[in-house]
């Protein structure tokens, strides 16, 4: 029994991470609302970061800031700073992607007036005539007329 307890004690953090990952992936893949997809993405990325931080963890070690009192030559005294650094980068990457995701989402709302995926798919399948134009260009006339274009 105590073996089992020990086993659980060793693993439960990993299980929580896996659970979070799956929740996040579920949100990204199966949620209908694009906002929710982004939420899923945030959860997913954070669970990934959590895994790395767990990898850096050592029992009875202190934070990776040099304390003159604690010998740096004994590696067991300090947490591994490498995954921490990596995850700083990963967090920033994550927020950048979230920013772009929101920007795209806003653009979709501007174009279609909805951010529900099923409605979007309906609109994509029956495109309105103006969909064919280049919505952001300033010369729809030019690209639609066969004689257009500059020499």
């Amino acid at each position: 029994m105590s073996d089992l307890l020990e086993y659980v004690q060793d693993r439960y953090a990993y299980w929580a991470i896996v659970l979070l990952m799956i929740i996040g992936l579920y949100g990204m893949l199966f949620k209908n609302n694009l906002h929710k997809k982004v939420v899923g993405m945030i959860i997913f990325q954070n669970s990934m970061i959590l895994l790395f931080v767990t990898a850096a963890f050592k029992w009875d070690a202190t934070v990776p800031v040099r304390d003159p009192e604690i010998d740096v030559q004994v590696v067991e005294n300090y947490l591994n700073p490498l995954p921490h650094t990596l995850m700083l980068t990963a967090i920033v990457v994550g927020v950048a992607i979230v920013g772009v995701a929101f920007a795209l989402l806003i653009k979709i709302y501007d174009n279609y007036g909805t951010i529900e995926e099923d409605e979007l798919l309906n609109k994509l399948e029956s495109p309105s005539p103006e969909d064919d134009g280049d919505c952001d260009t300033n010369d729809t006339q030019r690209s639609s007329s066969p004689k257009g274009g500059s020499a």
Partner: peptide, 17 residues
Amino acid sequence: GAYFIQSAYEDAATPNM
């Protein structure tokens, strides 16, 4: 990871590894 802990201060005079 071990190298960073041991030599970060000597390499860059900075306590925060």
